[in-house]
Amino acid sequence: APRKVEMRRDPVLGFGFVAGSEKPVVVRSVTPGGPSEGKLIPGDQIVMINDEPVSAAPRERVIDLVRSCKESILLTVIQP
């Protein structure tokens, strides 16, 4: 079942996760003590960023979407 995860941007750590460059977009790592800790799990597949589906989106679009979130971000993720 999809999970909705909302995180506030940390001034130092950002959102505190690293996503892979393949499709679908998969969470590779979560920064300890960062905003994503306890919310995202490595292996989570990101299916939506805010209200935009990203399963088939180019990597550049995913990066732009994350960067455009100055304060908070809403991710919809699934464990494949």
Score class of each variant (00 low, 15 high):
A1C: 14
P2T: 14
P2C: 10
P2V: 11
R3C: 00
V5H: 04
V5D: 00
V5I: 10
V5Q: 03
V5R: 02
E6P: 06
E6C: 10
E6W: 11
E6I: 14
E6S: 13
M7N: 00
R8A: 14
R8E: 15
R8G: 11
R9K: 12
D10I: 04
D10F: 03
P11N: 06
V12H: 15
V12F: 09
G14S: 05
G14F: 01
F15C: 02
F15I: 02
G16H: 00
G16M: 00
G16I: 00
G16C: 00
F17D: 00
F17I: 04
F17N: 00
V18G: 08
V18Q: 07
A19F: 13
A19G: 09
G20W: 08
G20R: 08
G20S: 14
S21C: 11
S21D: 14
S21W: 09
E22V: 10
K23I: 09
P24C: 03
P24F: 02
P24A: 03
P24I: 02
P24H: 03
P24D: 03
V25I: 08
V25Y: 07
V26K: 11
V26M: 13
V26H: 06
V26I: 13
V27L: 03
V27G: 00
R28L: 12
V30H: 00
V30F: 03
V30S: 02
V30L: 08
P32N: 10
P32Q: 13
G33R: 08
G33H: 08
G33N: 09
G33V: 04
G33S: 09
G34K: 00
G34I: 00
G34L: 03
P35D: 02
P35W: 00
S36I: 00
E37Y: 11
E37P: 00
E37N: 08
G38E: 06
G38K: 08
L40Q: 01
I41V: 13
I41D: 10
P42C: 11
G43R: 05
D44H: 04
Q45F: 05
Q45G: 04
I46S: 15
V47H: 10
V47Y: 13
V47I: 15
M48Y: 09
I49T: 02
N50W: 06
D51E: 13
D51R: 10
E52P: 01
P53G: 09
P53W: 08
P53R: 12
P53E: 14
V54T: 07
V54K: 00
A57R: 07
A57E: 13
P58T: 12
P58E: 10
P58Q: 09
R59H: 10
R59S: 10
E60N: 12
E60W: 08
E60S: 14
R61Q: 14
R61S: 12
V62S: 02
V62T: 05
V62F: 06
I63G: 11
I63P: 01
I63V: 14
I63S: 15
D64T: 08
D64I: 01
D64P: 03
V66R: 01
V66Y: 04
V66C: 09
V66I: 13
R67V: 09
R67L: 08
S68M: 09
S68T: 11
C69F: 06
C69I: 06
C69L: 05
K70C: 08
K70G: 08
K70V: 06
K70R: 09
K70D: 10
E71Q: 12
S72Y: 07
S72G: 11
L74Y: 15
L74C: 15
L75K: 04
L75G: 03
T76C: 09
T76F: 06
V77Q: 02
I78A: 15
Q79K: 12
Q79D: 14
P80E: 06
P80M: 06
